[in-house]
Amino acid sequence: MKLSLYSTWGCHLCEQAEQLLLQAGLAGAVEIIDIVDEPAAFERYRVHIPVLKVNEQELFWPFDLEQIQQLLRQQSSGL
């Protein structure tokens, strides 16, 4: 399962999202991608960050711990 958090430096909402990922026990499993470093990600997510992407499924902010866990369950069961 590929987990990515699209974020940028200085984004307080992104920091909140990172804390939720820590609470979910995903600290080392998530790749943090700064949209400033990737032009395609910047174009797609610039007004939507933070965005959690699990495989090809995107979860746009605002999201909570339960939504993260639900998305993970769906992806692990192949839905």
Rank of each mutant, 00 (worst) to 15 (best):
I32T: 08
R73N: 11
R73P: 00
K53N: 03
L13K: 15
L79N: 07
L65M: 10
Q74P: 00
Q23V: 01
P50G: 08
D34I: 03
A17Y: 04
L59E: 06
Q16N: 12
G25P: 04
C11W: 07
S4E: 15
H12A: 09
Q74K: 12
E66P: 00
I32H: 11
H48M: 15
S76L: 10
N55G: 06
F42P: 03
F42R: 11
K53F: 05
E18F: 09
V36I: 12
E56S: 10
L22F: 11
L22G: 00
A29L: 13
L65A: 08
A29H: 10
E43L: 09
I49E: 06
N55F: 03
E15W: 07
E58G: 03
F42V: 05
A24G: 04
P39T: 12
I49S: 04
G25L: 06
Q74S: 08
L72C: 05
Q74I: 01
Q69C: 07
V36N: 15
M1Y: 06
V47P: 00
N55A: 14
Q75V: 12
V51S: 06
A41R: 02
P39M: 08
K53M: 11
A24L: 05
E66K: 08
W9R: 12
S4W: 00
V51I: 12
A40G: 00
D37M: 10
G25R: 05
S4M: 11
R44A: 14
C11Y: 06
V36F: 13
Q16I: 09
L72H: 05
L65I: 11
Q16K: 14
Q74F: 10
R46N: 15
Q19Y: 07
P39Y: 03
Q67F: 01
I68D: 10
L52N: 01
I49N: 05
Q16F: 03
R46V: 15
G28L: 05
L13E: 09
R44G: 01
L5D: 01
R46K: 15
D64N: 14
G10W: 05
D37T: 10
Y45V: 05
L3K: 13
K53T: 04
C14V: 11
R44F: 10
F63K: 07
I35L: 15
E43K: 10
L79A: 12
E31T: 08
V36P: 00
M1P: 05
S76G: 02
A17E: 05
W9G: 02
L13N: 11
R46A: 14
N55P: 03
A27E: 14
L26M: 14
D37E: 15
G10L: 11
A27V: 03
L5E: 02
G25N: 03
E56T: 09
